[in-house]
Design a protein around this nucleic acid. Sequence first.
DNA 1: CAAATAGTGTCTTTGAGACACTATCGT
DNA 2: ACGATAGTGTCTCAAAGACACTATTTG
Lengths: 230, 230
Amino acid sequence: MNNDEYLKNYKPEKYDKLSLTVDALIFSIINDKLCIRLVKRNKPPFEGLLSLPGTFVKINESLEDAVKRVLKEKAGFSDIYFEQLYTWGDVNRDPRMRIVSVSYISLLSEEALSNVIKKEETDESFLDVDYILDNPQLLAFDHYKIIESARKRLAILAEEYNISFEFLPKEFTLPRLQKITEILLGHNLYKANFRKKIQDKVISTNTYTSGDAFRPSMLYTVADKDSFKV
Amino acid sequence: MNNDEYLKNYKPEKYDKLSLTVDALIFSIINDKLCIRLVKRNKPPFEGLLSLPGTFVKINESLEDAVKRVLKEKAGFSDIYFEQLYTWGDVNRDPRMRIVSVSYISLLSEEALSNVIKKEETDESFLDVDYILDNPQLLAFDHYKIIESARKRLAILAEEYNISFEFLPKEFTLPRLQKITEILLGHNLYKANFRKKIQDKVISTNTYTSGDAFRPSMLYTVADKDSFKV
DNA sequence: CAAATAGTGTCTTTGAGACACTATCGT
DNA sequence: ACGATAGTGTCTCAAAGACACTATTTG
């Protein structure tokens, strides 16, 4: 049997099929707190509880395209950073039917956020991650476990890669970069040490902030997004 | 029916369903080389080429259970270390139909290997990873890309976690542990430095190797498998 | 003894951590 | 001048790296 004949006679139905979703963990820093986009479920199961924005993966759509669709449709963003986190495949993770979910971490700058979502809406739909992690009963499905896992990953990404840049606009100050990193790590850093560590990853623009009631701060841009491994 | 036709004629159900597989990247060290289990395909597509052992995920089976089934049925092993690597979901990664694959890295000690597979079979079914990576044309589907990704991950696991232990029997010598680590990292290490670094992770058994035509070596066991993060 | 491998002592370099200091804005 | 934040210099300490040395087996 040659290849064409084989493909012609192939019956896809002889293998089990199941539903696949992608879930997006859209993080942003709001008022110096790490927040995550969650939606309130308006139907069973878990009606009234919070869940990650997600969608079913279409048969002719890559996982990345499905994530982009979620980010655009459910959050209004395009061209933002995301990366795969983990795939969750317990048999009973959804009480309705067998659904396997591929979760993606996505990072949003405050700037990008304010461009799309009104202030009041932001307060509703982006929730403090610390608060969420203290209240597991608020989450639907296995989404608490997923958020927990993503929270740990973010700390690693801040420590070993320089993921903090993704939360900032094109130009930023070092105090701000340090603050973001501290939020992601969960502890404070020494200013001088932090600057020594990241000095090769930023480029001075030779312009300064202004208007604040204190000393202006130098604005920087990212040096090389591809060489971020410490 | 090829993939394009299949997609064209596809009638959406309420939710799209698709096929999900798990693929196992079973690594072992054989003759001081990093090797991986590959199977020769005996039917199209990619007939004659090499592919990762894998299976379709059953509707009532978790991803982990599916991996265990692959490890047992296709390799003959149970109770071996494995962890999720990545999920591959390009639309056309399989020419027959839409298949998303969750890949898992699994590590096998030489000991466990020799208990199950005969020497001649081992030579056929476990192939030198360096050789494979030099010959992309030998691999079916997107499995070359997957192996490449796993190879990088192994180096990270050796560097930041102490994954080398998984390739060794319960009792091992430090020269052997160092050799495994060097193979995974891809470069040599200084003996004294290596020992300083891992000294808290091993416990001396106060017994020695014997029978070799040189100085015997102290045998050690693993200290605490759960505190491996450097 | 020679060959081969096991194992140790120590100097140097690098980077993380801690802390104190100086600088510059608006009011 | 003062409050507040920006930015720098430098000491300490721990770990990584490099290298030289000693130790123990068989043949």
